[in-house]
Write a protein that binds this DNA or RNA. Structure first.
Lengths: 332, 332
DNA sequence: AATCCTTACGTAACCGTTTTCCAAAAGCGT
DNA sequence: ACGCTTTTGGAAAACGGTTACGTAAGGATT
């Protein structure tokens, strides 16, 4: 391996000079610069990133924490992050947390130890203290779909509640009289907002009560099981809003097994806008989140913070619009 | 940050001694060991992983290259790798290559520079020279579903051809008279093997010729488009084997739009065994690959190589069985 | 000509480990 | 008590960079 000292020797300068030239710091005569660059090229020198990390406490890497890559929404998000990061020459560390506190902790520690340059968090079980801790080490963060009251943390979210309202009111508009919801986990703030959006639209109907709410966990299977539950409780149900697309897909299967025609006897709307919803039978109406765009923005925000001095960090809270996509599952 | 020297000072020994004790190398009196450990605990000392990497040329990290995490098969595989890696205290670096040579190259270089301890490759566009290069830097590799003739590289694969035969012969068994295939990309060896398996079963029928083969790219959309193509070419088609599940899902939609009843007028079988196939309407028969298990085995193999001296590396080529799963899409 | 500023670059310390080599201490046999 | 081997642990040099500081040379200013 060729080191900076090898280059220095061959170019007849000191290692410090080579370092400065590489990093464009301090001055040097045009001749020296040219000579050093020539030698670098000739010897095929490449700075050792690990050694660099040791002194600079940076790693050219940013981390993305997601709850699971098994839900296609997250890969889409990850691509946004990755493409954008690559365009800046940054590597990304994709971390699957399964929303388990233990895994989150481990990742966070390991990431800090590796001097990651920033962390994008889209995962439950990350506390304000965790972010605080990263900040105290000079590591900026951006949360996705998680906001903390503190003004210190940047976040990017979408209008979940509004999206849920779009979905639910659409069901009402097409004539559904009894609308259920398959909600997401209780400790998930996005799930809660999506539930609220639904509530906003149905709370004044006299048929509405808690029993129209089924508790899912965002998996296909839970959508399937919850739908069966709803059928049992309310044979007269004629519309369902699933708080994410995977559950909507499971739900579709349950409807089929239960012998309900979609959309005529049961209208369905999902949430997320994953690709698969176009290909189900029938295709599922959904509220599309700009996943890719969110990923892109997260990187931008991280870089904005990086440029600032740690003490001047001021958080930005951004909220993106969602888009309702009408498909057969709710066309009457 | 507390360093090894801080610990040394407080314990009244040298940094070298602390290092030796931590790593269990060389000897020390039980008292010294106990004292050092006590101080480590008291001060909350944790070795700096970056500094460690610099000297040891290791990083406690292994990388996994996959073509895309958007195909649910790969997340499943990734989980196997990750869970297993975690149980050994290893971090994993998940790399999305999109099967682009450029990205593969960049990742490989970046990974080598970061002293990854091993690389698991399940991606096209990785050449024998790439692996050779990693080996020359002491980095062991395991390929997944890619085998090179050289005996130097360990690999884990599944019996694609056999799986394709299972699928195709099943279609024949249930009475299909005209069976098409939606194959995968031409440069993908697994796609080729799966095609062969199909050919093995149909080549002797007099109806068979090239026109029963449609060229897909393993995406849902391509399954959809290819099926339309097949319908146009062969209105009498009554069975299709899709070389992966995503394409089978796309195909299902095409069948529906074309007004063909599945399975009665068109029987369908996929490949991979992704979860989603259980939830389509109808559920899709498939050939299940032990994705999780493959991931697990890849780590095991990597660790086996790590323990050996680089010069003693002898490759193992393992091939796992697939399992045919019968579902409604091909039940008559 | 003396003074001061700038520029260009070298020296050496540093980042936090590991590891090689070596010396002191301890154990052992006689 | 004396050599001889084995333990135990320290000093210092790696690993491959960055950077604070210093200095010599050259130019401008008075």
């Amino acid at each position: 391996m060729v080191t900076i000292r090898d280059v220095a020797a061959k170019a007849g300068v000191s290692a410090a000079t080579v370092s400065r030239i590489i990093n464009g710091k301090g001055q040097a005569t045009p001749e020296t610069i040219a000579r050093v660059h020539a030698v670098i090229k000739e010897m095929g020198y490449k700075p050792n990133v690990v050694a660099r990390s040791l002194t600079s406490r940076q790693s050219n890497t940013i981390a993305l924490l997601v709850p699971t890559i098994s839900n296609p929404f997250f890969p889409e998000l990850a691509r946004g992050v990755e493409d954008s990061a690559n365009s800046y020459g940054l590597n990304i560390f994709l971390c699957n947390t399964d929303d388990e506190r233990e895994k989150v902790r481990n990742y966070l520690i390991s990431l800090r130890d590796r001097y990651v340059d920033g962390v994008i968090v889209n995962s439950l079980n990350v506390t304000e203290e965790d972010l605080e801790e990263l900040h105290s080490h000079g590591i900026p963060t951006v949360t996705l779909d998680r906001t903390f009251s503190s003004h210190k943390f940047s976040s990017i979210g979408v209008k979940h509640r509004e999206g849920a309202r779009l979905a639910t009111s659409h069901l009402i508009d097409i004539g559904c009289k009894r609308i259920g919801i398959i909600r997401g986990p209780e400790d998930d703030s996005t799930a809660i907002q999506r539930l609220w959006g639904y509530r906003d639209c149905v709370k004044n109907f006299d048929w509405f009560d808690q029993s129209w709410i089924a508790l899912g966990d965002f998996s296909v299977k839970s959508g399937y099981l919850c739908m069966k539950e709803l059928f049992q409780r309310h044979p007269d149900i004629d519309g369902v809003y699933a708080a994410n697309d995977l559950m909507a897909i499971g739900l579709l299967k349950a409807a089929h097994e239960w012998g309900r025609k979609v959309p005529d006897e049961l209208a369905i709307v999902g949430f997320d806008g994953i690709d698969m919803t176009q290909y189900t039978n029938p295709p599922i109406s959904t509220v599309k989140q700009p996943a890719y765009e969110m990923g892109r923005m997260a990187i931008e925000e991280l870089l904005r913070l990086k440029k600032l001095d740690e003490h001047n960090w001021y958080a930005k809270k951004q909220e993106l619009d969602v888009e309702f996509i009408l498909r057969e599952s709710s066309m009457r």
